[in-house]
Amino acid sequence: MISSVLNERCRLGILKLRGIAVSKLEGKVIQYILMKNKQLHTLDLSFCKAELPEHFEFFMQKFDNFCNIRFLTMESMQPDLSTSIEVLGEALALNTKLECLILRDNKIKWIPYSNFWQYLIPNKTLRKINVAKTELTDKVLTKLV
């Protein structure tokens, strides 16, 4: 499946990988797709479960300036995104394509969550952000605004 997605004749624009178990292998595969596939514009990784939080980091770091994804959904990820959200923020600081980010229903501790918004400041392309049900407090909100 992966070699098909990475084939240069592949015209797949939307990829939904909802609810998959993310081990080191899947983490690396998603990372590779983000690096090599330039056709994908929509990626949905909601309800994915990682063995270790670090497995999310393999692909979180690739949502950077080389990534062509415009619509990214990561609802209800497990384990919580407290460990990997800052990696995502650092990547999105460089990103120039992403327009829509949906992170609803994730548990994120306030310090990494605040840092995430701080990292996001240089981003100029995001037009839609959905962070419903993410335990966002006033303290975190001050970093968002």
Binding site: R104, I121, N123, K124, T125, L126, R127, K128, I129, N130, V131, A132, K133, T134, E135, L136, T137, D138, L141, T142, L144, V145
Partner: peptide, 20 residues
């Protein structure tokens, strides 16, 4: 937030108070 062209912001079901 002032500098980005954000059009749609969903902050529902969180813990935002009057101060926030």
């Amino acid at each position: 937030m002032q500098d980005i062209s954000l059009v749609d912001l969903d902050l529902s079901k969180n813990q935002i108070t009057d101060s926030g």
